[in-house]
Design a protein around this nucleic acid. Structure first.
Lengths: 357, 357
DNA sequence: TATGTAATCGAAAACGGTTTCGTATTTTTA
DNA sequence: TAAAAATACGAAACCGTTTTCGATTACATA
């Protein structure tokens, strides 16, 4: 490996001068600078980032904490898009992305220690159990930390406008004539509360009374939990005319569950999702949903993290990203009384069928 | 930041001894070793990986080259799963994953130089244009390189058994009674050729003559290209009774395209995909497909890369991962003559409808 | 008791850069 | 023309660790 000393020897100058020439210091003459740069290229010099980091204390590395327990991490349909945004923006700014784990070499350690060993410049956290003590420690550290979909006064946050998302969606569904709307909400995280707020706000504004049984808890993206949610809905006194699921995948599992009970979407029940991922476009009819600007979320996260790194000030802020209503074909007007009786009959038949099996 | 010198001072010994104690060298007495370890913990010592890397020349870092032009990188439904496998296995072995890009700090550079600057220990390449000169340079370097879905004598490769995949799938479709089968194949990469081989092999074995017009070129995962492929198929003299698409997403786009022509799956035409990703399970009826063991592929890639790093021998090998036939509901027996005439009428009607619009 | 051997430890060089500060030379200014 | 200022460069310390090799001490052996 060729070092700055090799260049210095070849040029008949000192390593200090070479270093300065390579880093555009003002106190090296144009003539020697050109000589050095030429020689460096000639010898195929590649600066050693470890050595540089050792003296500058900057690694051009931003760590990404991205661990989904229930799903399989990077395959997460929503967060993988966000991560792609993080990656693109980081690369544009010259930073590399390294995943933070709980081990390094032969040792096990905390996330924070991992960052410290690697001397990571900043961290982006997404798609993780934020309550975990190790994650809290990381956020409490003096690293530049940006989280996606999580709020804390210790760090910066990037979030979609979740209140508006569910507000817009509910308003739209109401505009189609629905009054008996249910919201199957995701597991207990910050954004869930926000969305419920948006749901209630829309109802209130339209003068539709809110009852607790308009809400059913489920989990984001889980097949089983959303199938279960449908079962719970079926046990209600009346079948709602519209159901909003926690996300697009859940909505599609939900549609499948409904179908298995002889309930058609949107003829019998209107259905909507949340996220706006590709799958919503692939099912027939196209899923009505709220599209989150995932790429933008990721990019803003990177940008914010890098800004904090380079300004050396952890000025924690909340950045909200706008959302967009996607009108698909899974929401139509509510079924008529006539259709309602037919539906009830069909459901009975489906039930009988299942029992027979 | 506390260093080994701080520990040395606190213990009244030299930094050498501290280093040795921390690294389990044999020439330090148990007593002093314990004293040092205790003090290290007490002071909250965190070893500096850059400094260590500078002298050991090992960074515990494996680079990942993962750039999809047509799609959006990490959101790739197939490769993101593979990458998750890479990540999990790497972490288990104590290695971190860093994405390789064409820039670092303020400079632009080649992939190879990026690796050299960071002193990456090894590289896993996936989901990229392998013909790119920069990628070829990287593979020709003396780094430990493992590629996924690409073959070269300069590197190690991980691949599904693509021949068997398409062979099994075609055999299965034939077993349902089909003879007029088409294969919409993906763009021109190694695995595509393998799959075509498998397709032909199955036909040959079953005594079904192969004609060139049983093949249509498309692209993996692209909506437009697979819609176009369906258009081409519609222009054939006869409508095939079964169509295999390049992958699951393509298959579902294809089903949508067929539906827009009044063609139902599987009643009129049987359809199959390839990959076995989650979406195949979400559509109704469930997609018949070949499941690739993505997680295993990723893990094997990591493992192979790490083995090459640690053994310091680039013993390039090809690792083939088995595949599995998933029988869904999108393939049934071929339509009867009677159904065929009905289909033709329906297609005409659909066409007239479209023209009217 | 003298000697060979094993066990412990530390000095110092090395890894590859950055950065401060002093100095010599040149240029500008009065 | 002398003094002041600007320019160009290098010596050396430093970043935090590893690792070689020599020195010292303790112990076993003859």
């Amino acid at each position: 490996m060729v070092t700055i000393y090799d260049i210095a020897n070849a040029c008949g100058c000192s390593s200090s001068t070479v270093s300065k020439a390579l880093n555009n210091y003002p106190d090296v003459s144009l003539k020697t600078k050109e000589r050095i740069l030429k020689k460096a290229k000639e010898l195929g010099f590649v600066p050693n980032l470890q050595a540089r980091a050792l003296s500058t204390n900057k690694t051009w590395n931003i760590g990404v904490l991205f661990e989904d327990k229930s799903h399989s991490g990077l395959t997460h349909h929503f967060f993988s898009q966000v991560l792609q945004g993080v990656k693109e923006q980081a690369e544009e700014k010259g930073y590399d992305i390294t995943f933070i784990s709980k081990s390094l070499g032969d040792d096990k350690m905390s996330y924070l220690e991992h960052c410290n060993r690697r001397k990571i410049d900043g961290v982006v956290i997404a798609c993780i159990e934020f309550d975990e003590p190790q994650v809290q420690d990381l956020m409490a550290s003096d690293l530049s930390v940006v989280a996606i979909d999580y709020l804390s006064d210790k760090i910066s946050s990037i979030m979609s406008d979740n209140v508006k998302g569910l507000y817009d969606l509910t308003k739209y569904i109401i505009s189609l004539g629905h009054k008996d709307i249910m919201y199957v909400y995701g597991h207990d995280v910050y954004v869930t509360a926000e969305r419920i707020r948006g749901f209630k706000k829309a109802l209130e504004e339209e003068g539709i009374p809110f009852y607790e049984d308009m809400l059913v808890q489920s989990k984001y993206g889980e097949k089983k939990d959303n199938f279960d949610a449908v079962e719970i809905i079926l046990k209600r006194k009346s079948m709602p005319t519209a159901i909003i699921f926690p996300d697009d995948y859940s909505a599609i599992w939900g549609i499948n569950a409904l179908r298995s009970h002889g309930i058609n979407v949107p003829e019998d029940v209107s259905v909507a999702g949340f996220d706006g991922v590709e799958i919503g476009e692939m099912v027939y009819p196209r899923l009505t949903t709220i599209k989150q600007n995932t790429s933008r979320m990721g990019k803003e996260a990177s940008l914010k993290c890098i800004n904090m790194i380079e300004s050396k000030t952890n000025n924690n802020t909340i950045i909200t990203i706008g959302v967009e209503l996607i009108v698909g074909g899974t929401c139509s007007g509510p079924r008529s009384l006539d259709e309602d009786t037919k539906l009830i009959e069909r459901m009975k038949k489906a039930k009988a069928n299942r029992v027979k099996k």
